[in-house]
Design a protein around this nucleic acid. Structure first.
Lengths: 225, 225
DNA sequence: CGCCCATTTGACAGCTTTCAAATCGCGTGG
DNA sequence: CCACGCGATTTGAAAGCTGTCAAATGGGCG
């Protein structure tokens, strides 16, 4: 638990970020890594024609851009989805604690590896699944992660994104995401009210989305810091 | 250089893997991480309808599935593209050296972070770029990485993949990849003979593929091990 | 020389996008 | 309390990029 104390003693500055405001911008020379204390955030890139791709969603407790503790130039933008409380921790402090306390170093590495595993699944999602599957898969992932974080029950949760943002996660258009959500509703797999999603039949939705939670590595031996 | 010696002294077993044979299979309980000594390899997943998505290509010197040093169950399959010489290093040995020698731990973490950065770019590639851009982008990435590894000149290189595999990298069909390659040829951006690709005008191909090498982090301060 | 796999080509279907317009939800101001 | 305004969601029709299906061509190897 000395490790835990050392983490909590890390130097940091707190900031509150308003919805849709950037936390870190692509191209920035990085000095900090950001820990999300409350709220939801995403990471994204913009391609040539101005289209946006989101490649991860983060909830409280996540380290949003750990890569910036090591890599020099931010290769992506992090942005607040809701109002967020963010702790900015200096690069050097993170690297030092990782080097000096190997359990922490391994925990950070572990976090990075899971991050990568989720990316791989997202590549498969946008690359090889049709629109309905992509949306169903995303809803399953969010459900499972929120539940694992204790932010919701598995059956029902508050979606922190607009349909336009869901489109940017799945490589679709907002219009088509809407149609897929309607279809999933009509099929009875989910029930929607405003932003909240209720999963009526987990098994069927998971199968509609080709979802298998293994890639989240939730049950791996995890170091409790 | 004691670090370098320690790395070279890591226990390992060598194996030669024939083209299109698996190195590690999705779902395997992992005991090793694999270093590619010679040849080309990929990582991939198969989705519900049997379609395959490739999400990374590896060349000699790469650690193909470093995640398996920490994560318990392989969430993806690694496969040889050409005949490969692979060193299998026990999980425990890697974790121990990472914990005991922090420069090595950081180097491994760094490797994982760059891996992740490339994944993010691939998500954007398959999610938000049209077919021609995706193919051009992939050709640029391969060119740059091969050149950085000293395996080719920037202008010309031997593509280690069939068009079907290129399709699985880009989320397209083999037929459509073929059409895009023909278009890039007709436009004079590349010249192809069998599997070799010659880039006639790097600037134009990069702009056709919306390619910016920043995400490869080739120029970051890198620990020489 | 013949076989087999990879590449190339053509015609057509279909999923997703595009473009617009209508509807809804909700905070604000009268 | 109700009207207004604005962003988000819905809906419809039509276009277009990419996929599908087949068949032809090409290249390497036994």
């Amino acid at each position: 638990m000395a490790d835990r104390a050392a983490v909590l003693a890390l130097p940091h500055t707190l900031k509150t970020i308003e919805p849709n405001r950037p936390i870190v911008r692509e191209g920035d020379r990085t000095s900090f890594a950001c820990v999300l204390l409350t709220g939801f955030a995403i990471r994204q890139k913009t391609v040539a024609d101005g289209a946006r791709q989101i490649f991860s969603m983060h909830l409280s407790g996540d380290i949003v851009d750990l890569q910036n503790a090591v890599l020099r130039i931010a290769d992506n933008t992090a942005q607040a989805l809701t109002r967020c409380q963010v702790a900015f921790v200096p690069r050097e402090a993170i690297r030092r604690i990782a080097a000096e306390r190997s359990p922490i170093g391994e925990a950070l590495w572990y976090d990075t590896l899971v991050d990568g595993s989720i990316f791989r699944e997202w590549i498969a999602n946008v690359g090889r699944r049709d629109a309905r599957m992509r949306v169903a898969h995303l809803l399953c992932e969010f459900a499972m992660r929120m539940q694992a974080a204790g932010l919701s029950t598995q059956e029902s949760y508050e979606l922190p994104m607009t349909q336009e943002q869901l489109a940017d996660c799945t490589g679709l258009t907002p219009v088509h995401v809407n149609r897929m959500l309607m279809i999933l509703s009509e099929e009875g797999l989910i029930t929607r009210t405003k932003r909240s999603v209720k999963i009526n039949n987990w098994h069927n939705l998971a199968s509609a989305g080709d979802f298998d939670s293994a890639y989240l590595h939730l049950d791996d031996a995890r170091l409790a810091i």
